[in-house]
Design a protein around this nucleic acid. Structure first.
Lengths: 229, 229
DNA sequence: CCAAAAGTGTTTCACGTACACCCATGC
DNA sequence: GCATGGGTGTACGTGAAACACTTTTGG
């Protein structure tokens, strides 16, 4: 069942840069390639776009296939289409980046460490194709975006403490932030609902849990609000 | 000379949103389609990506073909790949947006108004495909970007007055700006070189001409500078 | 009682904003 | 001399940044 066209066509893939929180770092999901080219090398999860699915759907499908993850933040990053980027021929890839919260998703990756694994963003092995460039682009986008959109919460469970969220900001921006000033700013958005619950499994004062007010966020966003942090 | 593949492949195009300055407004270049689908409708300039050219090269080629323009600012916007966006079949388009300065480029478009024409961004006719959505995305991007990158100058000749540049900002942002405050900010970047030349063809006090300091800009950018306006 | 992180206010300084008049030129 | 845009400075208020101690809990 071959398909024939009058003009030559590039292949189109989607690749996903999946971020998650590690103990002391930001991590990226990589897949070890089982087939040439770059057999045995680490690469971003991805695959070919099917004819009956949109680009975003393709990205979600790949993420589901590779990691078993469901509820994730996903956004288009950039499209890479240089002529020589794939030795097999002309392949254009639409890159997406995703933020996931590991505690919620028991990731398939964890089950077979030889196939998929989480790597700290500042200790990445040599990657297949132009995937290092894609990853770098994603990190830059993330750094920029966290300054004016509350995407940090996507890396955390639904209920989280302010210190956890601050750690997210510090990991993404790569710098320490002043606790009092940062809290003032983040709380002044009015998007964090304080709960009457506290984390209890810690060996120090129990920190208050917060929840993101998504309804309010969508409302404010529709009114053209600005969330600079 | 047909081309055959094992799996079905989408077609890949590039579309360009080309902005330029009008007398009292921001304008977009549109092409009237000569063939179905959407025959006779206005559309963004664009076309298929060739196998031996990168995406950016494809965009530049299309711009050259359609408008005869050479020196332009060009940046990737977004990739649109919904399943039903082209009635001919699956077509994925990588959209670019461009800023051009009309006085420098004698645009082919001007020669045959039935084929291509400049439209004010807030008075756009019904467009082919999902091109209205693409245009809207481009306008939003432009509005956002002008806040932290000095792209406004790309719409002007090499030598320009501060009032001209301020008009660019006002047109893109869609709001009046305070002259004194705006000048303070734009000059405080240190990126505008005052020249010892003045516009002479005006019926009032001759305004000083400025030039963009590209070297300084690239240097500052490399050092991670912030150009918020 | 000690360790470890949570939580909380004030002062200072820089920057954004509001605002009005004189200048130079062409007609 | 009049119309048209060019060009300039100050006062005020808001928001960013610097900064240290007390509280709570578990071990």
């Amino acid at each position: 069942m071959p398909f024939t066209y009058e003009y030559e066509r590039p292949a189109v893939t989607v690749d996903c840069v999946v971020f998650a929180l590690g103990q002391d770092d930001l991590k990226v999901l990589l897949i070890r390639r089982k087939i040439p080219p770059y057999e045995g090398k680490w690469a971003l999860p991805g695959g070919f776009v099917q004819m009956e699915e949109s680009l975003q759907e393709a990205a979600l499908r790949e993420l589901g296939e590779e990691t078993g993850m469901a509820r994730i933040y996903l956004e288009q990053l950039y499209t890479f289409g240089d002529v020589g980027r794939d030795p097999r021929g002309r392949v254009i890839t639409v890159a997406y980046y995703a933020l996931v919260n590991l505690s919620a998703h028991r990731v398939k990756a964890a089950t077979d460490a030889r196939v998929a694994a989480w790597f700290p963003v500042d200790d990445i092995p040599s990657l297949a194709f132009d995937h290092r460039k894609i990853l770098k682009t994603a990190l830059n986008r993330l750094k920029g975006k966290i300054g004016y959109e509350p995407i940090g919460i996507e890396l955390l469970p639904v209920k989280f403490t302010l210190s956890q969220l601050q750690r997210v900001y510090e990991l993404i921006l790569g710098q320490k932030l002043d606790k009092r000033n940062w809290r003032k700013k983040i709380l002044s958005t009015g998007l964090l609902l304080p709960l009457d619950e506290f984390r209890q499994d810690v060996s120090h004062r129990a920190p208050r849990l917060y929840q993101f007010d998504k309804k309010k966020y969508l409302l404010m966003k529709k009114q053209g609000f600005n969330f600079e942090i």
